Structures are given as structure tokens and as C-alpha cells.
Simulated scan of single mutants.
Amino acid sequence: MNTRPNANEYLPLGEKYVSLVPEGHIAEILQRQYDETLRSLSDLTEEQANFRYAEGKWSLKQVVGHIADVERLWSYRILYIARGDAREFSGYEREVFVQNSPFGQLPLREALKDYAAVRQSTITLVASLTEEALLRQGTFNNYPLSARAAAYVIAGHELHHMNILRDKYLT
């Protein structure tokens, strides 16, 4: 699908992410991001991967793990919606997820391996969906959510965090 979602397909806070996604076919955008993210992060040292730009901030590899975990949640929503089993989806507590994830202790290569597996699964799912399936809707935090919008949130969420990584971690 080559069209971005309409604002009535996602909650207002989703605009922060959807607006970052360039024009194009969403599955191809997800693939390009995958390639760029691995190219940008694969050669970092463990010292760089453990870097935190301020007290209380996540390490770079925790950010990578966060991207993968959030993508898992949004892909789950895409699957339910696209298959016609729309329902009310709830949010999650990101700090709890990061605190209870293994990513801070894993080598960076393992965090990237997890990210790669999740992203490849998302690409396969999104690329297989018909336009009709992408336009189906469920509800997220009392707002409509289309499968298409969820795919754009995944892409925009990664763009958001990769911008932060470039600005605060990789300078």
C-alpha cells in the first residue's frame, strides 16, 4: 500500500510517529529501515552499546531492545486487525518493559539479532496483507486503529529512536 493513513485511523499521539515516515510502500520503507539500522549499529563496540547520554537514560542496546519490543506489540495489533479479529488494544508501560528486558546485559550483536528477527517478521506480515486487510480497524486506547496505521507507527517509532541515537549516542 502506497498511501499513508488518515488521521482518523490512529490516536492523536500517533501523529508524532506517522508524520516521520516518508512516502512510499510501507513494506519497502520497513525494509530500508532494517538495512539502515543494521548498517548504522552493527560495527559499534560494546562500550558504545552500553553508553547512556545522561543519568537514568537507557543504554543504546536497551533502545534497540525497546524498538524490537514495541514492534512486537504493534505487529500483534496488525495481525489481529488484518485477520478481522478487531478488538480493544491496551497500551503498555515502557519503563517496566525495559527494566525487565535482558537487553542491557546482552551483547549488542544479540540485541541486533533480536531486532532483525522481529523486523523480518513484520516485513513479511505487512507485505502479505491486501489493501482491504490494511484498512481494517480495531480500537487502541479508545481511538480507531487501522492495520495500515499500526505499520506506520512501527516505522515512525524506529525513525524517532534512530534520530535520538544519531543525536545523543553516536556523535
Rank of each mutant, 00 (worst) to 15 (best):
L125E: 04
S101D: 05
A147C: 08
A150N: 04
R119H: 10
A117L: 14
L112D: 10
L129E: 11
F89G: 12
G138T: 12
R148D: 00
A111V: 03
A82N: 08
A117R: 11
E110Q: 15
R148C: 02
A68C: 06
Y143W: 13
L135Q: 14
L129Y: 09
Q137N: 01
A68E: 02
I78L: 03
H157V: 05
F140P: 00
A117N: 13
E93P: 12
G65A: 09
G156Y: 03
H160Y: 13
A82V: 13
D69R: 07
I154M: 09
K61E: 07
E93M: 13
W74V: 06
K61T: 01
F89I: 11
I123P: 02
E132H: 07
E132W: 04
S121T: 14
L145R: 06
A155F: 08
R72M: 06
I67Y: 05
E95N: 15
H157C: 06
E88V: 14
T124V: 13
T124M: 12
L106S: 00
Q99C: 01
F97G: 00
E131W: 00
I123R: 01
E71Y: 08
G156S: 07
H66A: 11
S101H: 05
V153G: 06
D85T: 08
V70R: 02
I123F: 03
Y80M: 10
A147R: 01
D85S: 04
E110W: 03
E88S: 14
G65R: 05
Q105I: 02
P102L: 04
F140I: 12
A111W: 04
G91P: 07
E110G: 00
R148P: 00
R83S: 08
I81Y: 02
A82L: 10
R148F: 01
S121H: 00
F89D: 13
A127Q: 14
S101L: 07
E158T: 14
L73N: 11
Y80F: 14
T139G: 00
F89W: 15
L79R: 13
E88Y: 10
G91W: 01
Y92Q: 08
V98E: 04
R119L: 03
V70Y: 02
P107S: 09
Y152D: 02
I123G: 01
A133D: 09
N100T: 12
E158R: 05
Y76V: 11
S146M: 05
V70F: 08
T139L: 10
L106N: 01
Q120G: 08
A151K: 02
G138S: 13
R77D: 12
E88L: 13
E71D: 13
D85L: 06
E93V: 15
F97A: 11
